[in-house]
Design a protein around this nucleic acid. Structure first.
Length: 274
DNA sequence: TCTTTATGGTGAG
DNA sequence: TCACCCTAAAGAT
């Protein structure tokens, strides 16, 4: 179940496995794509880049493989000839002499040429990538003051891929908590200092999640919780998926509600609407 | 075995 | 805002 940080980690694995290598075969599990396999004969992988929550794998034949994992797609990297033990559906295989990159379950897969890439409806509307190392908090702050974004609650904003690409449902809860802001808060009603705090929290949570496999708590705090007997799945987040549990900062009870069609988690004491 | 939920996204109204 | 799509796994029966 992937947000930007998870996709970026998968990209790292795929890159290490197949970048600069000639493919022996590209295979598609979706019938409508099988006739495109021939175009990849003898092609070489020239780029592996995450864009928002999509994966773009470029080849020296001018084509790019686009995929989006939605809620359920999953990449596996294996030695050539071995398949993961899973009951999932194989949807795409990039096979080189020594390594295979295998995409399971995903249904959003496409073969794009340069024009198709530049006009792709999902890619075209993406905002700056949250994991782009050159992205600065000031850029996000400026976007919070943009007419397009300033009047919407930040809970909805953080899910909008045209605001910042790569954020998803666990990160929005964690970012709002880290910034000590209520998700209904509109950027328009915030002080500049609050907007800067929100911008910094956005980068901080996403980058930490990338570095520590989706853990948004500080590494030492997550480790301490695990030593104290908490399971790995329960010792990951400040508020996400912690309804009716106590806040790790103030001990009030975390509440859960629906916002923009998804569940969101909030500490009523730490995140007061102003 | 059925139902619900999920770290996602689109299009209609 | 809502219905709906996609697929897998967890939960309820």
């Amino acid at each position: 179940m992937p947000e930007g940080p998870e996709i970026a980690r998968e990209a790292d694995q795929i890159r290490a496995a197949v970048l600069d290598k000639r493919v022996e075969r590209v295979h598609f599990g979706l019938p409508h794509l099988s006739r495109r396999e021939a175009a990849f004969e003898d092609a070489r992988v020239v780029s592996v880049r995450p864009r928002g929550k999509a994966m773009l794998i470029g080849f020296d034949n001018g084509l790019t493989l686009y995929s989006h994992n939605q809620l359920y797609g999953r990449w596996y990297v294996r030695k050539a000839g071995s398949l993961p033990k899973t009951r999932r559906q194989l949807r795409m295989a990039i096979e080189t002499q020594d390594r295979w990159a295998l995409l399971y379950s995903a249904s959003e897969i496409d073969v794009l040429d340069e024009v198709g890439l530049s006009m792709h409806p999902y890619l075209a509307k993406l905002g700056p990538d949250v994991l782009d190392p050159t992205l600065e908090a000031a850029t996000i702050s400026a976007r919070l003051e943009d007419r397009r974004f300033q009047r919407r609650g930040l809970g909805a904003l953080l899910l909008d891929q045209s605001f910042v690409a790569g954020l998803g449902n666990y990160l929005r809860s964690e970012i709002a908590f880290e910034a000590r802001l209520h998700p209904d808060q509109r950027p328009l009603d915030l002080d500049p200092a609050d907007r800067r705090r929100l911008a910094r929290a956005t980068l901080k949570m996403a980058r930490r999640a990338y570095e520590t496999k989706g853990v948004t708590l500080p590494r030492s705090q997550a480790a301490a919780l695990r030593r104290a007997g908490q399971s790995w799945s329960r010792a990951r987040h400040w508020v996400f998926a912690r309804a009716r549990q106590s806040c790790r900062r103030c001990d009030d009870t975390i509440v859960r509600f629906d916002l923009a069609g998804r569940r969101i988690y909030v500490c009523p004491t730490c995140q007061v609407l102003r």
